[in-house]
């Protein structure tokens, strides 16, 4: 028991020391941060935006934001949780921008200025290297359905179902209780079912 307390305390000390180095903009500390978190951040971005190029751009922006805002980080949460939050916010920002552009493009297509755009997709092209080819089609449909969910449900569903985080981790990132995570997941599943039924109906199933 004592060993675990000591280990926890030394971990906290390590993290606060590491944070101090980051705040002092130490290049070596930042290099370590990149080594430790690049894979996690990239995979989270990929869970929200299933396109390798888009996700790479977003992940890069996440690390630039971390670098610029680490001075403002007060340490109220774990560093990893804070970085996850930035990754989620940057991904949502990207999706919002894409959706706005899509709407604008759609309006232009109505007024006859440009060619019609693809109204169903918020990513450039479905290109998720972690998804097997045989699952690609059904997962693409799922990702498009997730995009139609309200933002709160979208975040919780993506972090839990796609990114594979536990309820506790999702709760920490979104700053919500486990019961509200469960409720959001329940509603997300219900809404997704409706969206998918409509989709398959349109497809003539």
């Amino acid at each position: 028991m004592g060993y675990f307390v000591f280990e926890k305390q030394s971990k906290l000390l390590d993290e606060s020391q590491f944070l101090l180095e980051l705040k002092n903009q130490s290049q070596s500390a930042y290099g370590k941060l990149l080594d430790d978190y690049q894979k996690k951040v990239f995979n989270t971005c990929l869970s929200f935006v299933p396109n390798i190029e888009d996700a790479e751009d977003i992940a890069q922006e996440v690390f630039v934001e971390v670098y610029n805002s680490v001075g403002k980080f007060k340490g109220n949460s774990k560093l990893s949780t804070w970085i996850y939050r930035i990754a989620v916010n940057k991904s949502l920002e990207f999706i919002r921008k894409k959706n706005t552009k899509k709407r604008f493009g759609f309006m232009q297509s109505i007024s006859g200025n440009t060619l019609p755009v693809d109204k169903s997709s918020y990513f450039t092209e479905f290109n998720h290297p972690g998804i097997q080819l045989e699952d690609k089609e059904r997962n693409e449909i799922l990702f498009k359905a997730i995009n139609q969910l309200p933002e709160g449900q979208k975040v919780v569903f993506t972090l839990h179902k796609i990114d594979g985080l536990s309820y506790k981790e999702v709760g920490e990132i979104t700053d919500k209780s486990i019961s509200s995570i469960e409720s959001l997941l329940f509603r997300a599943r219900k809404n997704l079912k409706e969206v998918l039924i409509n989709f398959y109906k349109k497809e003539g199933w």
Binding site: G31, L34, Q38, K39, N43, E56, V64, G130, L196, Y200
Partner: peptide
Amino acid sequence: IIDELLDSPLVIEEVNTPPFFKDKVL
């Protein structure tokens, strides 16, 4: 099909970052 899609655990492998990711960020 929909239930399967929503209930079955998604088989998504963890992906490595693209080459030179760290260099690009720096």
